[in-house]
Design a protein around this nucleic acid. Sequence first.
DNA 1: CACGTATATACGCGATAGAGTATATACAAA
DNA 2: TTTGTATATACTCTATCGCGTATATACGTG
Lengths: 132, 132
Amino acid sequence: MGSVFEIIAEPNRRSILSLLGSSEKSVGEIEQQLRMSQPTVSKHLRVLRDAGFVESTVDAQRRLYRLKPEPFQEVDAWLAQFRRFWSAHIDALERHLDRMGHSRDDQSTPTEKNTIRKRRGPKREKGKGETK
Amino acid sequence: MGSVFEIIAEPNRRSILSLLGSSEKSVGEIEQQLRMSQPTVSKHLRVLRDAGFVESTVDAQRRLYRLKPEPFQEVDAWLAQFRRFWSAHIDALERHLDRMGHSRDDQSTPTEKNTIRKRRGPKREKGKGETK
DNA sequence: CACGTATATACGCGATAGAGTATATACAAA
DNA sequence: TTTGTATATACTCTATCGCGTATATACGTG
């Protein structure tokens, strides 16, 4: 599997990562708390480990998995190129997040606003709302 | 297509987003600069617009696409839960990012670094190495 | 050693995404 | 209107993903 983005595209994998965010866990614990089948958990963990998101240590028959930071930072690095851009739109953003029922406890940068509208003369119509 | 993560999982879409990061562009410009076929560009733009990553205005026969900030922030919000975790590992992280430059489809990381094996019975060990 | 537990892997299946080709639509200029 | 340009969509094909089922492997205990 290619990039870190493809890795975190899978909802169950994101759940696993979030779960491991609190503390390291065994496969069985993950299986139980997330209500996924054991093979499914193992396979996702395999993908996550190959991608560097997690690492494991052996404890008797158990494997304890925990997060590794690097791939997250890679995502963050990609996201960084858009930060300056969205910082001017935080208000609209909050509406958006509220609407989706997401909790946003982030700590983003509030800074300048560079809303550069460069529309020209009206041509004829507007029809901007294409099918949604 | 479900989440924002699935949207940005596609490499061509990430390229489009990065390109639009500099300034708004028409389909033709994207097609040319990224060397993708026109239908491919249009379809990706459709996906991106449906997901709220971009919006378009009409300029004669052209459509000018530009970024919208909300979905990026959504990704950022998810990432936030891991920030406190990786901040302790910045040094290792930088090595990681340096090393991987930008190569795709690479997961060569030898994840078997500190595998604390505590078994004692020699049982006929099979390749614990992750076959990939 | 046999057994139970914990985890990993193999295999087949159904769903779906992305690309290519062809065509449809919108608009402008002649 | 006809033609040319710019973009969107329909359709088909192929590859891959994620799951379930079944089995293999590893380990501790009796």
